[in-house]
Amino acid sequence: MNLTINRLASLAAGGGLLMFFQLYLVNYLIIGNTAIPFIYFLFLFMLPISVSPAIEFTVGFLMGLIIDISGLTLGVHASAITCALGVKRLIIPITISTGVRETGDISLNSQNFFWYSTYLLILILTYNTVYFLLEAFSFINIGQTILKILFSTIYSFFINYLICVTFYKK
């Protein structure tokens, strides 16, 4: 139990840091107005499966709303993160191995490279798809929106993976 609380505390602290970076520094990492990295959700994607989905959705929704308020995109991030967390809850029971179900931990330490990469990629793709479709709110520039989704997904995946390997892998 202590271990879980410690783990949750360290995840939450990391989540706070990621939020800070997302709010104040990520603007300098945007490439050519097409590839926009999102990192704040990594904390939510790494939350153990034992955490209640309702709590996870609420925290995600509020974090999304904070990012929205800072960027005048009210509701867009909140909707995208809630969608991504919904997908997380859908794919975990289908794909996760029994060994992991016991520990409930979702990180590179307990998962193999292939599973974790696919998991991260699917969630980031879901997030970006919802975010950019809602942001554009039309199909007029759909080509450009698709490019944004693809490039931002690859870019976000790369940065998130880097953060995992650097800070979360023991």
Binding site: T73, G75, T82
Partner: peptide
Amino acid sequence: RNVVYWFILQFLAIIIIVNYN
């Protein structure tokens, strides 16, 4: 309840988007 809650949050987000964006 989790699915219902998810839909409520999503609905809330969409309302915010439509009203403020």
